[in-house]
Design a protein around this nucleic acid. Structure first.
Length: 477
RNA sequence: GGCGGCGUACCCAAGUGGCAAGGGAGAGGUCUGCAAAACCUUUAUCCAGCGGUUCGAAUCCGCUCGCCGCCUCCA
């Protein structure tokens, strides 16, 4: 609300109540929806990791003009559309490693609560009804505009909103809309109709989290009017502060412009996952701070893929070392690694405590990656060295767990890449080729060995000769 | 027009008044049958520009330029 970073202190010690605006279920989701979901997934995971109990509510708007329009176009009822795209949403989110919210309320399951909320506002004279519509009277709520830092005079002067003669002011917004012929409707004290958009969040957040709660989130485009209106409704009704901390994520841009349905410059999650591994997409979304705009491009996604591959390559190295390291105590150059290991968690916490700075946190992960590689390059052996590497490995897994990335085995990563990159080669055939090449190498038939390696490389598979074996990986980038 | 944000290397990107993280790309090297991977060295005397505050500014303040967003459904 202050527009600045503030120290986080939940209303109830140890318990965080968080409400995040979900989607309006009228079409498949694009990358912008994914960003919002991933950002708040990270926030939730990190708060839990820090020991808070978190109650996360994420709503689904399953009745609205666009859903009705889509239903009419597809010649089905509104609930068929809402159900279909809600399911698609959950499927996309699961692919991206976004955990489900604790409570996922649908608007249409809470008509009764919304009517109660609206009735309360009418009783308190913050709302008025005209011919079956009910509007919130913005001029009665004096701190209107505090979140979006707009003042009502400017808004009226520059109003691009449709002038609706029935409203007392162009700023007044609908709490309840009378239904037109053929539209879905529910009974209400004001006649047959349906709820306005903003009221569901007020009614449902209050039902599940109480009149005041800690975090309310969503995309930055929801600040005005949606969240401003929520504040007005909620605080007018209860007289209490609605939300302690507002968190809004920035946009995905394409050629520097906001990715949006209306501009038509959007890429659906589905189509991006045709070309990129889901972890790549999630990682990409974490490479910038959540409030900054983030430019979507193939180059960016490719970079993310390279970074993740660097991670898994190192994991493979660690695994190889632990399996093959000798027993003779050879310390290697461990001082830098030890130093980094003991500082690492503090650095990670510092980054994440500072407004969930995932980009900075990822930087530290790669510092550690370089350091462990350096250590392994120094050819250590023995129990102490192994312990140090295990410690590194556990730490990386731990942090990866919080961000919900880096949680595959390298094999799983490469198999997944094989699929995404549509490499037409069975693992069996691949291993056969490798074995043929090993025979050639033993006979020092370098030309034959190189031919096989080249053939595989053209298919997108890279071979790496190690001490006794040859490993394969999928070419990235 | 009102309000808000951003501008850091070839590209992406973090940056808390005190020596400019990290990734990618480039160049050179170590290793290797050759590669790949990894590591090392190197690439911003400087953070859009101009002023100011300060012992000290990418960071704070002011102005200018450029880009973007919200003000209408949007994540």
């Amino acid at each position: 609300m202050s527009g600045k970073k503030e120290d986080f202190v939940p209303l109830v010690p140890g318990h965080v109540k968080m409400y995040v605006c979900g989607i309006t279920a009228y079409d498949v989701c694009h990358l912008g929806h994914a960003r919002s979901a991933v950002v708040f997934d990270i926030i939730k995971r990190y708060l839990r990791y820090k020991g808070f109990q978190v109650t996360h509510v994420r709503n689904i708007t399953d009745i609205d003009d666009k859903i009705i329009a889509r239903a009419a176009k597809d010649n089905v009822t509104y609930d068929v559309i809402a159900k279909k795209y809600t399911e698609e949403y959950y499927r996309d989110m699961e692919m991206l490693g976004v955990s489900r919210a604790d409570i996922e309320p649908d608007a249409t399951d809470h008509i009764k609560e919304m009517i109660e909320t609206i009735r309360g506002l009418v009783d308190k004279d913050y709302a008025y009804s005209i011919n079956g519509d009910v509007y919130f009277e913005v001029s009665k709520f004096h701190s209107y505009g505090r979140l979006s830092k707009k003042n009502t005079d400017d808004l009226v002067a520059g109003a691009r909103v449709d002038i609706d003669e029935r409203k007392r002011s162009p700023l007044d917004f609908a709490l309840w809309k009378s239904s037109k012929e053929g539209e879905p409707w529910w009974e209400s004290p004001w006649g047959k109709g349906r709820p306005g958009w903003h009221i569901e969040c007020t009614a449902m957040s209050s039902k599940y989290l109480g009149e005041s709660f800690d975090i309310h989130g969503g995309g930055a485009d929801l600040i005005f009017p949606h969240h401003e209106n929520e504040i007005a409704q909620s605080e007018a009704l209860t007289g209490k502060p609605f939300v302690k901390y507002w968190i809004h994520n920035g946009f995905i841009t394409v050629d520097k412009e906001k990715m949006s349905k209306s501009l038509g410059n959007f890429f659906t999650i589905r189509e991006i996952l045709e070309k990129y591994e889901p972890e790549v997409v999630r990682y990409f979304l974490l490479t910038s701070h959540y409030r900054s705009p983030i430019e979507f491009s193939d180059a960016q996604l490719t970079e993310a893929e390279l970074s993740i591959d660097r991670y898994y390559t190192t994991v493979t190295r660690i695994k190889d070392f632990l399996e093959t390291a000798g027993t003779a105590e050879k310390p290697g150059t461990s001082a830098d690694l030890e130093k980094m290991l003991s500082a690492f968690k503090d650095k990670f916490h510092h980054a994440m405590n500072d407004d969930f700075n995932t980009a900075s946190a990822l930087g530290f992960i790669f510092e550690l990656i370089r350091e462990v590689n350096r250590f392994l390059d120094s050819k250590p052996s023995g129990q102490k060295a192994k312990e140090l590497v295990v410690r590194t490995s556990d730490l990386l897994a731990d942090i990866g767990g919080v961000l919900n990335i880096f949680n595959k085995t390298p094999d799983e990563w490469y198999r997944s890449l094989m699929k995404v990159k549509k490499i037409e080669l069975s693992e069996e055939a691949l291993l056969q080729k490798i074995s043929e090449r090993q025979d050639a190498r033993k006979k020092k038939e370098w030309a034959a060995a190189d031919a096989i390696r080249k053939e595989l490389e053209e298919k997108g598979v890279i071979l790496e000769d190690k001490k006794d074996v040859t490993a394969w990986k999928v070419r990235v980038g």
